[in-house]
Design a protein around this nucleic acid. Structure first.
Lengths: 202, 202
DNA sequence: GTCTATAGCGAGATAGAC
DNA sequence: GTCTATCTCGCTATAGAC
């Protein structure tokens, strides 16, 4: 799907436009223009706007969610490494795909039913190595006893939200467009240190 | 604007529909139905869809941002109280307005220019009592020295993101629709404790 | 497979009676 | 101020030539 066929050109153009404008806001003409091809080709390859959107959403949400699972299930790292990995690798991923998170979150709220079928119902988060390692460390008394789910939500929120809410937060903390990426870069370290420090102090 | 005049009925109906579907996804007919009045009345009172949307967005974004400033500037509370207040009061506010945050974030990204004029350019965050108290406490060595902006972004992210990303996170942590509100309720305490504990340990 | 032309419909907006 | 009827346009989708 990464070659230069017409179909993949459409796919990549649609991804870009849907990510920026969402299903309701995107226009087939705009996608065609972005791909540099004729509008009727979109229907030739993907039948309808909804079908095309479905492909994009499926791919995007799987990519977004998949990143977490692979890191949380890594074999050769302890819970501390995994927190640092999430902070660094996921930040990098979102820096490279600035509209992805908001797109997935947003469209998921809009189309609860039509989209529900596209998603894995259970990610098995509780059974990843990360959670096992956390529970183990708590049992041994190495770290503070907390609800692992609250910790996970904190981790995700701290990393994802600055990207989701980018323009609003940037304005609030009064940083320029040049300073903001640097702020996010420093943030990886800040979040990892905070969470790990909190867990280790009793 | 809170009486039962036609204009306020339209306003409240539009708020509800725009919050749920956004500018592009909302339909004037749907707003009229929600308000229980004729569609042409929307144009009579608000001229166009864009004008009506503008009123809703202005009101919503001001309400959303204003909550923070008032808490961060409270006279009779120290930095610790203020963190707890943000966690508790802002959570309650978002629980009561579940679609507000995502709506503001989303539309802000969609309409960068048309909306920019509606927003206060500088919230003066750095000059609120909260930040003064934080810097003071750091100077005295009472708390860990951190970038106050990073801390603020963490605070906002931890509280706001679970609401913004509600349906996605809920699915991830595998909680039912009944368990999720309880989880969010416990979260207020969890976040406040974590941030305060982190700051106090050196 | 790719293009042009156009069908068909939905939605925002207005005219005009009451 | 409120309603019904209608205009107009933009957008999805398709038909059909090449």
């Amino acid at each position: 799907m990464d070659d230069k066929t017409t179909e993949s050109q459409i796919f990549h153009a649609a991804l870009k436009i849907f990510h920026k404008k969402g299903l309701a806001g995107a226009r087939m003409q705009e996608i065609a223009d972005e791909a540099g091809i004729n509008k009727s080709m979109l229907h030739y390859y993907y039948r309808s706007k909804e079908k095309l959107f479905g492909e994009i959403f499926k791919s995007s949400s799987e990519e977004f969610s998949g990143k977490f699972l692979t890191i949380l299930n890594e074999e050769n790292s302890n819970w501390e490494d995994k927190i640092r990995d999430i902070c660094h690798l996921h930040s990098d991923f979102m820096m490279a795909n600035p509209d992805l998170a908001l797109f997935v979150i947003n469209e998921m709220n809009q189309q609860p039913d039509c989209i529900a079928s596209l998603l894995q119902t259970d990610m098995g988060l509780m059974h990843t190595r990360f959670f096992k390692q956390l529970r183990e460390a708590m049992k041994k008394g190495e770290i503070r006893k907390v609800d692992p789910m609250q910790l996970f939500v904190s981790l995700v929120s701290e990393i994802v939200h600055p990207f989701v809410s980018g323009s609003l937060l940037q304005r609030r903390v009064n940083l320029t467009a040049e300073e903001w990426p640097k702020f996010l870069e420093k943030r990886k370290q800040f979040v990892a240190d905070m969470l790990i420090t909190y867990l280790k102090t009793k």
